[in-house]
Design a protein around this nucleic acid. Structure first.
Lengths: 235, 235
DNA sequence: CGAGTTTTTGATCGAGGTCAAAGTTTGTGG
DNA sequence: CCACAAACTTTGACCTCGATCAAAAACTCG
C-alpha cells in the first residue's frame, strides 16, 4: 500500500495526503527557481513558503476573472466546470494531487471555467508575473513550461476517450483514469475516495446519475470493484 | 462572400484556398523570426520559402515517430487519428487552414497520433530545433508559444461539448464549429466543403454513419442547412 | 463506362434516458 | 452526542432515440 496515510485507510482517501513536491507537475519549475513559488505569493499565502488551503466547495477562481497565477494541487481534489451557452453547467475536468490548474488561461489572460474544491485541498501558487520573468531569464524553464502545456494538450485529447463507447466502458475508464493518475503521483490507486458526487461523474461522462449508480452496481456485482457510497476499491 | 476563390464557389471549398499568413496561428512566431520558418526547412521544402504540399490521403506524420517540427496548415484539411488500445481508430481532431499541428508532441518528443490529409493540403514547417533556439534568444517568442499551446488546451476542453447531448445538437455543433473556425481565418464559413467522409464525422462525434446521414437529412428538411453530398451551405 | 467505394434509406431492437419513489448519507442545531 | 432536515444515492417501470442489419442509390476515379 503506497499511501502515506495507510493507518487511516480505507476511511481516508489518497487525495487527503499531501504529495511529495517531486511528484508534482510543477516540480520542474519549482526546482529550477528559488525561492519556492509559494513564498510571498500574496495574502493568500497563509503559511509562508507552503501550500495554502481552501475548504470543500470553495472556488479557486471563477470563469472570466483575470488569471493571476497557475496552481499546483498538493492535496485534495478540484473540478473545472463550464457553463454552456444553453446555461447548464458541465464538469470538464477533475484535478488530483500533482496536477497543475489554470494553464488554459495563459492565452486569453482570463480563466475559462470555474474551479471548485471537492474536498478540503491544498495548493501552491505560481504567479504569472514571476513565471514570465523567470522564463525570460531561464530558457530551460520556458522549455519546461512548453512541455507542461503540451502534455496537458495530449491529456485533453485523450480524455474524450472516456466519453465514448458503452456505458460500463466509460465508467470503468473513468475509474481507471483516476486510479492511474493517483499511482503516477505515488499515491494508492486501488483504494479511492470518490470526492465528486454521482452528479459530477454523470456530468463529466455525459450520462445520468441513475446510470452511474446502476453501472457501478453492475461492476460491483461482477466483482471488478467494491463500491460503497463514495468509497471504492479496485479488485 | 469572404472567400478568395469566390469565382469557383460553390464547387470549390474554402479550404482549397491558401489563407493569409496573418490569419495563421503560427504568424506571431513567423513575424518575430527571420528568415521565414519554411526557408531551408529540409528536403521537404520543395519551393524554398513557401509552404509545401501533400496530396490527399498522405500522412503528415505517424503516431510514435520522433517529432521534428510543428506545422501550420496554409491550405486544405487534415485529421488526427488515434488507435485506441482496443485497436479501433478514432478521429480526435480536424485541422483547418490557420491551425497548428503537432503541438502535443512537445512534451514527449513523439507524435501521439497519425495526421492524415483529407484533401491536397499545403503546410509550413517550423523545426523544433529552430523553435527552441529562437525562444532562448527571444523571450517574447517563448511567450507567444505558451499562448499558442494554452489556447490549444482551451480548444481541446471545448471540443468534448461537441460529443455531448442529442444527436442533432452534436451534428449542428460540429458544422457550426467548422464554420466558425473558417470565418475566424477570413474564409467563407457559410459555404463548406466537407472534406472528411461521413465515417470520419461519425468517428469524431462517436456516432454511426447512418445516424450522420439521417441527421443531416433532418437538418436539411428543417431548412437549417443545405447539404448535397459533401457540399454544405448554412442558411 | 464500370467496378469499387461511399452515402442514403428502411425495418427492427436494445441500451440508456425519464419519471417516480424509497433509502441512505451528511451536516446542523439542540 | 443525538435528532432531524436536506441533500445525495439507489432502485424500479416504462419508453425513446440511436445502433444494427440489410439493401438500394449515388458518387469516384481509373
Amino acid at each position: 500500500m503506497k499511501n502515506n496515510c495507510q493507518a487511516m485507510l480505507p476511511a481516508m482517501p489518497s487525495t487527503a495526503c499531501a504529495i511529495a513536491c517531486e511528484a508534482c507537475d510543477l516540480w520542474t519549475i519549482c526546482r529550477s527557481s528559488r525561492p519556492p513559488v509559494t513564498r510571498g505569493a500574496g495574502r493568500r499565502d497563509r503559511r509562508a513558503g507552503f501550500a495554502w488551503q481552501i475548504p470543500a466547495a470553495a472556488y479557486l477562481f471563477r470563469a472570466g476573472r483575470p488569471a493571476r497565477a497557475v496552481y499546483g494541487v498538493r492535496q485534495g481534489t478540484l473540478k473545472t466546470v463550464r457553463i454552456s451557452p444553453d446555461g447548464d453547467e458541465r464538469v470538464v475536468a477533475f484535478h488530483l494531487p500533482g496536477d497543475v490548474v489554470g494553464l488554459d488561461a495563459l492565452s486569453t489572460g482570463r480563466h475559462s471555467g470555474d474551479v471548485i474544491a471537492l474536498e478540503p485541498s491544498a495548493l501552491c501558487e505560481l504567479p504569472l508575473t514571476r513565471l514570465h520573468g523567470w522564463s525570460a531569464e531561464m530558457p530551460e524553464l520556458a522549455r519546461s513550461m512548453l512541455q507542461l502545456l503540451s502534455s496537458a494538450i495530449t491529456e485533453a485529447w485523450n480524455r474524450p476517450e472516456l466519453t465514448r463507447g458503452a456505458v460500463w466502458q466509460r465508467v470503468e475508464g473513468f475509474i481507471g483514469d483516476l486510479s492511474a493518475r493517483l499511482e503516477k503521483r505515488g499515491l494508492d490507486g486501488r483504494h479511492l475516495w470518490l470526492s465528486m458526487s454521482r452528479a459530477d461523474i454523470a456530468s463529466f461522462l455525459d450520462l445520468r446519475i441513475e446510470t452511474i449508480s446502476r453501472t457501478l452496481r453492475r461492476l460491483r456485482d461482477s466483482d471488478r470493484i467494491d463500491v460503497r457510497g463514495r468509497r471504492l476499491v479496485l479488485q
